[in-house]
Computed example of a mutant assay.
Amino acid sequence: MIDPKQIFNIKTEAGFNTMALQVFKFQFENNPVYRSFCDLLYKNPSDIKTVEAIPFLPIQFFKSHHILSSKNNIAKTFASSGTTGSVTSKHYITDVSIYEDSFNYGFNAFYGDIKDYVVLALLPSYLEREGSSLIYMVDSLIKDSNHPESGFYLDNLSALSETLKRLDSEGKKVLLIGVSFALLDLVETYAFNLNNTIIMETGGMKGRRKELVREELHSILKSGFGVNAIHSEYGMTELLSQGYSKGNGVFNYPNWMRIITRDTEDALTIQNSGKTGGINVIDLANINSCSFIATQDLGRVNNDGSFEVIGRFDTSDIRGCNLMVL
């Protein structure tokens, strides 16, 4: 059994590669769904010598199978958003403390101590449903900030506007994290000129508005809040780690996470940096589910290891990976 604490102590590329191969072997032996997928590809740990050669499980499997590498009881189930009647992804968590360690260490690595911030959350579409991993994370950050004015806002934009302006003018460090459509609602109703506030969007119009390209969205938000950059969070139900962007849509990730891209026509071919392709995520915090996931996002990995999200696949199928009936 791999000690999760080892995952969060990774310091070097060599250390990451060694741990990733160990996690692959562990999940091959303990995750029946992932084992079946690897068997269909004729991939065995004895044949895998590099991280790039590890098979990446299509993310749709989280909609149709129990993806577990642990026999422990399920402590928490995170579920994706979806339209009425649609099949949602479910991430079964046997050890919630691993998720908590991941987002706490990750946030601290990029932004410092959460106690330095007042955390304001504008996430109505997530609050209105059960099982959001984002709400779980932000609720924990709000509590850990230990500031009496940290909290969630649903429809009370007027109160949020007043609080945000006052805290910023008092020189408090503020983190406003919100879903895109709600942040747009806020700046269309109220004007801001903020100097001490980080605006972090979590993406998505959730069917409430027309989708905008990132450049247009960030331009509107920068103007509306009076800030120089819009930060972003890259996360999903199927992951226990997040990437963060401090502007221009360029993301970085913590030491236990990696992004690589695959050819859009051949899902088993890994691309070099600089080419747009399907985003594959290695999230070693997913030790008890699956750490190697082929997402439906399109993106590009830069030469320095940072990455950008370009868009989504047009169809729900990830081409080249449909080897098992979903």
Rank of each mutant, 00 (worst) to 15 (best):
S133W: 14
N156G: 09
D139P: 04
D139T: 13
E149C: 12
I142E: 02
Y153E: 01
F152S: 00
G131T: 12
S140C: 15
L141V: 08
V138R: 03
Y153R: 02
G151V: 06
S125T: 13
L123K: 00
L123T: 03
S145N: 05
R129M: 13
F152K: 01
E128V: 07
E128H: 12
L154M: 12
L123N: 03
R129T: 15
S150G: 02
S145E: 10
V119C: 01
K143W: 07
P148I: 09
S150A: 04
Y126F: 10
R129N: 12
I135N: 07
G151N: 03
P124C: 04
Y153N: 00
N146E: 14
L120Q: 00
R129G: 09
P148R: 06
S125I: 03
L134F: 15
V119A: 03
I142T: 03
D155G: 10
V119F: 05
E130H: 15
D155A: 08
S132E: 05
Y126G: 06
Y136D: 06
S145Y: 06
L127Y: 11
D144S: 15
L123V: 08
N156S: 14
V119P: 00
E130N: 13
E149G: 04
E130L: 06
E128N: 15
N146H: 11
M137S: 05
L134N: 05
F152N: 00
K143D: 11
S150T: 05
N156I: 09
P148K: 09
L127G: 09
M137A: 09
D139K: 15
L123S: 04
E149V: 07
L122I: 04
L127P: 14
D139Y: 09
I135T: 09
P124D: 06
E130T: 09
S125C: 04
S133N: 12
A121E: 03
S132H: 14
L122P: 00
K143I: 11
E130M: 15
A121G: 07
V119S: 00
M137T: 03
S150P: 01
K143Y: 11
H147L: 02
Y136T: 08
K143V: 12
S150N: 04
S133C: 10
Y126S: 13
L134C: 13
L134W: 08
N146P: 02
S145Q: 10
L120S: 00
P124I: 06
K143G: 05
S133F: 07
Y136G: 03
D155E: 12
E128P: 04
D144W: 13
L127T: 08
K143L: 13
G131F: 15
